[in-house]
Design a protein around this nucleic acid. Structure first.
Length: 544
RNA sequence: GCGCCCGUAGCUCAACUGGAUAGAGCAAUUGCCUUCUAAGCAAUAGGUUACAGGUUCGAGUCCUGUCGGGCGUACCA
């Protein structure tokens, strides 16, 4: 519909003989006030300046020249300072509703991203411990954006990037070794900054069970590291699985050293005069890209900092021919992002192909108090624990209900309550309720043939239809802005319009043609709820 | 100090990327179950959008400054 309005408006603009650069992008939006119609454009207001005319006059000229299909648009009005408001024809609503019923489970798909290959990298937690609540927000956001992009036509791959070398992993191996020796009843000093979590003991126990004391005499921590990594990755996979997240690939940072791309990156920087040596370290001239200070790429110890592999990794992604690479990371990593962009730009890649979703931190609120977390000290809340408490559906929902850009307060008490305070149940309940009605309708009626949708004329019915048919454009805007919470807001709106319809209009017990029309409307609502919840990765139960 | 994010109802957050009268949930008050699921509906109350300027037809949204909060600001990842 928006496209249609844009096209007829564009035709109406021809009369002004405007040079190309003065024609603004035509914005169509849904007015806040229902009495302002179903769609509106501020076109005349935007043209006031270039045309040096009063916006209301311009609006008048546009409307006079406007040729529209009365099957779709019932009325066009000028209002306020010069808005042009459109009202949809009832017939158009019925046509669209029919489309919903016809397309069913695939209703809402579009092709705005079709032909695009997208790589979304998320979670990317190093295998040093179980996933925490913070990783949870990352995981759910990444996966949901992936689903949104798939619904808008993109071909999406999900990738998990990790580093199993370096100090963190060394400490992990030492921690496991210490627990292993303790398990065997030997004296072993636990590393000062070691990982104290219970899971370390589990790994140690598993090693004792498999190997006995065969590893006790060796100083080599490699077997401990390897065992820990395998064990932890298995846990992570299972945790993700509980939330219905499956990765397409795991990318090991180490491969970038193996295939020489780390060396190659430095070499190119050197050739371009963007890297230099000082105090035994290699520096990247980030000052060239507007930073205050240059950045170290390789420490004097010979070990690269994480920025170098990050840059090489992004180059690697782009080499794999993705049209768009999205990274999901927490606010604490925000500083590396500009460096990575500068890096790949320096390597000659198109940096607009890299996009980032930054999310703010999660605070767990337990018994009205915020809960402080640290992985090292093991006083974190793991994602699994959280899901044990509130379930996977609620977990996903809470992570998605707010804009990534704001701090998220996850109130366990609130999330635990089934119903009342808990917003996810509102949506599931609406779905279950419709399914219940439809089951009853099946028992009591034998409905066949095509429903006469024109019987749906009650204001609540009209409102509900208008909401249903917005679904596709909501998905698009959520996908484009990478903001899943828009879809949640919409689904709340939808459920709320359904319940007012449910209270205003009886579905069963009316005459048969009306029953048929109303069950169709209810079925369409349930379908959109199910499709929407599916994108969010949340179940849509038939009964509650 | 510098960089990024944020400041909206008592609390947690929206506001379609600059549009018309700033909206939901929770908490508070009130009414609605012999009738399709009351995990619901209807209504009342709650606001100088932190503050001060600026940009323009129009600002919660953009710019400048001030105050307040979060995260960075290592040759840690």
């Amino acid at each position: 519909m928006k496209d249609y309005l844009r096209s007829i408006l564009k035709d109406a603009l021809r009369q002004f003989d405007l040079p190309e650069e003065n024609i603004p992008e035509i914005q169509i939006e849904k007015p806040n006030q229902p009495e302002h119609g179903d769609a509106a454009t501020n076109l005349a207001l935007m043209l006031a300046r270039p045309l040096k005319n009063n916006p209301r006059n311009i609006a008048g000229q546009i409307v006079d020249a406007l040729k529209y299909d009365t099957g779709r648009v019932k009325a066009v009005e000028i209002a306020g300072p010069g808005f042009i408001n459109f009202r949809y024809a009832q017939h158009y609503l019925y046509d669209e509703l029919e489309t919903v019923l016809r397309e069913g489970a695939s209703f809402g798909h579009s092709d705005v991203y079709s032909g695009q290959k997208v790589l979304i990298e998320f979670v990317s937690a190093n295998p040093t411990g179980p996933l925490t609540v913070g990783h949870g927000r990352n995981a759910v956001l990444g996966d949901t954006v992936a689903r949104l992009l798939e619904w808008t036509g993109a071909e999406v791959d999900r990738e998990y990037y990790f580093n199993n070398a370096g100090r963190q992993m060394r400490v992990l191996g030492q921690s496991v070794r210490a627990r292993y020796l303790q398990e065997l009843g030997r004296d072993a000093a636990f590393p000062e900054d070691g990982y104290q979590g219970e899971y370390i003991r589990d790994i140690a126990e598993a090693l004792v069970a498999e190997q006995g004391d065969a590893l006790a005499e060796s100083e080599d921590i490699t077997p401990f590291k390897e065992k820990a990594e395998a064990h932890i990755f298995e846990d992570i996979r299972q945790t993700l699985n509980r939330m219905d997240i499956t990765m397409d690939s795991f990318f090991n940072e180490h491969d970038l050293y193996e295939d020489g791309s780390i060396e190659q990156t430095i070499e190119i920087f050197r050739q371009k005069g963007l890297a230099y040596e000082q105090d035994g370290a290699i520096w990247f001239k980030t000052t060239r890209f507007g930073k205050d200070k240059d950045t170290v790429l390789v420490k004097s110890s010979g070990e690269p900092t994480y920025r170098l592999p990050d840059i090489a990794y992004h180059a690697n992604k782009l080499d794999r021919n993705y049209d768009l690479c999205i990274d999901v990371f927490g606010a604490d990593h925000i500083d590396t992002y500009p460096d990575v962009l500068s890096g790949i730009e320096a390597l000659g890649y198109d940096k607009t192909k890299v996009d980032v979703i930054v999310y703010q931190f999660v605070t767990i609120v337990k018994e009205g108090k915020p809960y402080k977390m640290s992985t090292r000290k093991a006083n974190f809340v793991t994602l699994d624990e959280l899901m044990d408490e509130v379930g996977a559906d609620v977990t996903r929902f809470f992570f998605l209900m707010r804009s990534p850009n704001t701090h998220l307060e996850f109130d366990i008490a609130e999330a635990r309550q089934a119903g009342e305070k808990n917003p996810v149940f509102y949506l599931q309940y609406a779905h279950a309720r419709i399914k219940s009605i439809l089951r009853k309708a099946e028992d009591e009626y034998t409905l066949s043939g095509t429903p006469d949708l024109t019987l749906l004329a009650h204001p609540s019915e009209t409102q509900l239809i208008k909401t249903i048919i917005r679904f596709q454009e909501v998905i698009q805007s959520a996908a484009e802005s990478r903001e899943p919470h828009r879809l949640i807001n919409y689904l709340n709106d939808l459920a709320s319009h359904f319940t007012s319809f449910y209270h205003d209009c009886r579905i069963l017990g009316e005459e048969e043609a009306l029953v048929q029309a109303r069950t169709s409307l209810a079925a369409a609502t349930a379908q959109v709820l199910a499709n929407g919840l599916g994108i969010l990765g949340i179940s849509a139960p038939d009964r509650m």
